[in-house]
Amino acid sequence: MADDNPGFSDPVTLFQDVEDLKAQIARLTGLIDRLTAGGGDDPAGPGDGDTGAPAQDADAEGEEEDGYPPFILLLDSPAYDEELRALIEWVEGVLVPGYLAEPSSDAHWCHLWFEHPVAVGRLHALWLAWQELTEPATCGYTGPSTWHRDHLDPCMRELRGRGGPFGGCTKNEHQIAHRQPSLVPSAWRMAES
């Protein structure tokens, strides 16, 4: 009776949805197990390194109450510098050699990507998702596929596209100010004239 349920007519999409739900349930089950096993006043605990992130104490500077690292653009020095060093290590050690082909006119990349705040923000978000979705205990078998489809591909399209933060950078020239918008006169002020 596939005709009665038009939303289920595509078995591949249905399978992907079921697998995503299984991965979410596995993550939630792992979180519930960690929270109930702690037994102390701090239910978040140190996380036992199960997010794929570098092992740190739950009370470490820059870490929020729930045990997850904060978004890099919300950090101040020295926490920002420490998180950026870890991000650079991941980008240069995993992302660049494994996923980035030679830059071209259609796929830009800047070797000084860490000087582009937009790139730092996007790559940090990509890295956080990678840490969560490549941990077998919490993501199941579909985590890496979900990371590629939902995180890597859209991030690379935004970063490496013609209008992305590296759009003005070439192999021999680095520009961080090329994305600054020029001043546009306010429509209200023009109407007053």
Rank of each mutant, 00 (worst) to 15 (best):
D3R: 15
D4M: 15
D4L: 15
D4P: 07
P6D: 03
V12K: 14
F15Y: 06
Q16D: 07
E19R: 13
D20N: 07
D20C: 03
A23I: 01
A23D: 06
I25P: 00
L28S: 10
T29E: 08
T29D: 09
T29R: 11
G30I: 06
G30P: 05
L31P: 00
L31W: 10
L35D: 04
G38I: 05
G39H: 06
G40H: 06
G40I: 00
G40S: 08
D42I: 01
P43K: 02
G45I: 05
P46S: 09
G47T: 00
D48T: 08
T51E: 10
T51A: 11
G52R: 05
A53W: 03
Q56L: 00
D57Y: 01
D57N: 07
D59A: 12
E61P: 07
E63K: 07
E64G: 03
E65H: 05
D66L: 10
G67E: 02
I72A: 08
I72M: 07
D76I: 00
Y80W: 12
E82G: 09
E83D: 10
E83G: 01
E83C: 04
R85D: 08
L87I: 01
E89K: 14
E89V: 07
V91N: 00
G93S: 01
V96I: 04
P97T: 02
Y99T: 04
A101I: 04
A101T: 09
A101N: 10
A101D: 13
P103I: 08
S104P: 05
S105Q: 14
A107I: 01
A107N: 12
H108G: 01
L112F: 09
E115L: 14
E115A: 14
E115K: 14
P117G: 12
V118L: 10
R122Q: 11
L123C: 01
L123I: 01
A125E: 14
L133T: 04
T134V: 13
P136I: 07
A137Q: 14
A137I: 06
G140E: 08
G140K: 08
T142D: 13
T142S: 15
G143P: 04
G143Q: 05
S145L: 13
S145C: 09
T146D: 12
T146G: 09
T146N: 14
R149P: 03
L152K: 06
E158Y: 04
L159C: 06
R160E: 01
R162T: 11
F166V: 07
C169L: 09
T170L: 09
K171L: 11
K171H: 06
K171G: 12
H174C: 05
A177M: 13
S182C: 08
S182R: 15
S186V: 04
A187F: 06
A191D: 13
S193V: 10
S193T: 11
S193D: 13
